[in-house]
Nucleic acid binder design. Structure first.
Lengths: 156, 156
DNA sequence: TTGCTCCTCACGTCACGTGAGGTGGC
DNA sequence: TTGCTCCTCACGTCACGTGAGGTGGC
């Protein structure tokens, strides 16, 4: 039954595109971070859709940029999983009221991610300011030393 | 010979202050990330100065905020180690020219850290923008649904 | 003396890395 | 048929976590 469905891509290319290894993808599947491998004959090749790739990219970003553990990712992922599930219901649900409910339940999940990003940004800004201060002091010090060795009196 | 030197603090308090465990500190010492334990009788308590604590804080920040491996930290630390060594020479060196050289060698190290921080900030800003866009679209969608269910025609 | 924190092994764990040996699709 | 990528164990590694059993300082 070869429907004209979305193109499927193999694990190696997915790994290259996302910037991780095939091992990592298999490990995440083992932990249940990716949607079930559904029906895949034991030993046959894994195939991924564009949606799967986007999902992996998000997981990797949350891991790398926010330093979340895979346990924490699982939590967030379960929420996103539910979101995915709701997205499927979306087409089926015709009522605006139902649709509104679906969107409302999805919002806090995204909001939480944004909060985490904001906190990270704050810490990085602090760090950057500190490094800049350090660098600035070193440069003025250098300038002072140069002035002294050329006979120019240092300001102060 | 109890000199009136800087106060020393034990590993547990250091761990609390920095927000890590004693095990991590011992592991870092084992890897040579902290200045040599110098002369410590095998089995006796480790004692740390304020400078040691500041150093550990920096290492942990580089690890957490930038996601550096301990190998990468070792590289940066060796440069910082050299910087530390130079700082000791500082007092001894009277010549401005020598001092200028010391500062000049220390600058690129700090600059490199700042570059890494900048790159991280860029990625986080991208991520934040994406999440905000997502959130915004969800909110307008919700508003549209609300308008429709109350009979108000949706814009567009 | 009694707690408390510290010490040194040493094994466990998380998140993969890295082959070994074998099968499947262009 | 020949490469190439894929598959499944399974052991190794990095960065610690977590006791076990014992010693030291207020």
């Amino acid at each position: 039954v070869s429907q004209t469905s979305e193109p499927q891509v193999r694990i190696g290319e997915v790994a290259d595109q996302v910037g991780i290894t095939a091992r990592t993808i298999r490990y995440y599947e083992e932990l249940g971070l990716l949607g079930d491998p559904a029906t895949r004959a034991k030993g046959s090749h894994r195939l991924y859709t564009e949606a799967d790739i986007a999902r992996l990219r998000e997981l990797v970003r949350l891991r790398d940029l926010l330093g979340l553990t895979l346990d924490e990712l699982t939590e967030l992922a379960e929420a996103a999983q539910l979101q995915q599930c709701l997205r499927a219901q979306w087409a089926a649900s015709t009522g605006d009221r139902e649709r509104a409910t679906i969107v409302r339940t999805a919002i806090p999940n995204v909001q939480r991610q944004l909060d985490l990003v904001r906190a990270r940004q704050q810490h990085l800004a602090d760090f950057a300011a500190e490094l800049e201060g350090k660098l600035g002091r070193m440069h003025t010090l250098l300038a002072d030393l140069r002035r002294q060795s050329t006979g120019t009196p240092a300001r102060r």
